[in-house]
Design a protein around this nucleic acid. Sequence first.
DNA 1: GTCTATAACCTGATAGAC
DNA 2: GTCTATCAGGTTATAGAC
Lengths: 203, 203
Amino acid sequence: MTQAFSTKHRILGAAEELFARHGFGSTSLRQITSHADVNIAAVNYHFGSKENLVEELFRRRMDQMSTDRRNALQKALSDKDVTLESVLRAYIEPALQMGRKHNGGHFVRILARAYAEQNDRLRKFLSENYGSVQRDFAKAIDQVRPGLSKEQMYLRLDFVAGALTYTLSEFGMVKRAAGVSEAQHLDKLTDTLISFCSAGFKS
Amino acid sequence: MTQAFSTKHRILGAAEELFARHGFGSTSLRQITSHADVNIAAVNYHFGSKENLVEELFRRRMDQMSTDRRNALQKALSDKDVTLESVLRAYIEPALQMGRKHNGGHFVRILARAYAEQNDRLRKFLSENYGSVQRDFAKAIDQVRPGLSKEQMYLRLDFVAGALTYTLSEFGMVKRAAGVSEAQHLDKLTDTLISFCSAGFKS
DNA sequence: GTCTATAACCTGATAGAC
DNA sequence: GTCTATCAGGTTATAGAC
């Protein structure tokens, strides 16, 4: 019992890093347990199977990000001067800040992997558990910027999610320059993305 | 010799479908050859290794898409009434049309996977071979819409690529409605994305 | 809760017959 | 160019001692 949390936590941490780097299929439980410095059998003891480990890992991070987004949205809406920009910020900033606030920098890349996945189980899990966040933001955007059809609204929200994820996976051409701190880089990225997307929503 | 192309082609086709569905690491050569109805040893005979198979597969599709984009860009620039919208269309439309023109519908999902990959070899391969296309588009956008710094330009191009890929991987909330044809759906998607992104570039 | 040992199986790759 | 057979090593999962 005393080490239970520690071991479980270490497994989750190592799994997150390795899944982000090499993907689910290419990462073996042996690599994970070796990296986490725990026994191979611990995975099955604590999670039951590799598939369950993936799901717990997803749940942990998505809950964090969704909570952050909801809180930020509520705060934005409670302001009298709520704008499209402030609503979009509530959606974008929590994702971009995940890495620093929760030490979850690897998760965004895992999320990017999930997008490419045709895995019905994973898609259903995500849509059932976190689809309501998207709907809340759609509602909020409709308040500050009415007139978009439901289809146009969700299409544009998909564009935002795509631009956000792609940027976060650090695949694109823009890398952080040598003299710029991580925080500065993220701030500039956030601002540019918000202004890009709010212009897009107004189009 | 007589069957060489056929076998090679069948392997590439099956690999593309399965890599898109399950990822590189989770797809075995046995699954591929069984799906392609060829002998397991044929992969090594024709490609040498799994890694080479992946690279040939990438090269085949990326060459198609890059050529289509370059041609479309040249055509757009040769028009006296070239606009930001027409340049963005030259970037976006070839990707969205890949599935229908070249029967490469699976490839966009593979590309989305590649984005999430931290595989240095793959990243280097893509950036070395196809980075010039991005640069050509950056130059073209600067002609029709001057003023963006190099960093801001590439940042926004990354947003476009992200929104495009995400949309193409059919992960988002917007699905094609029952009464709408694939072609109509793609056309609407293209137009919305172009207007979203050109507004973003003007912001 | 943690460990070792092992079962049962799948993996990429290749040698060699045809 | 295509096949079978096989290698060496990796995989998840679990039984059972501590």
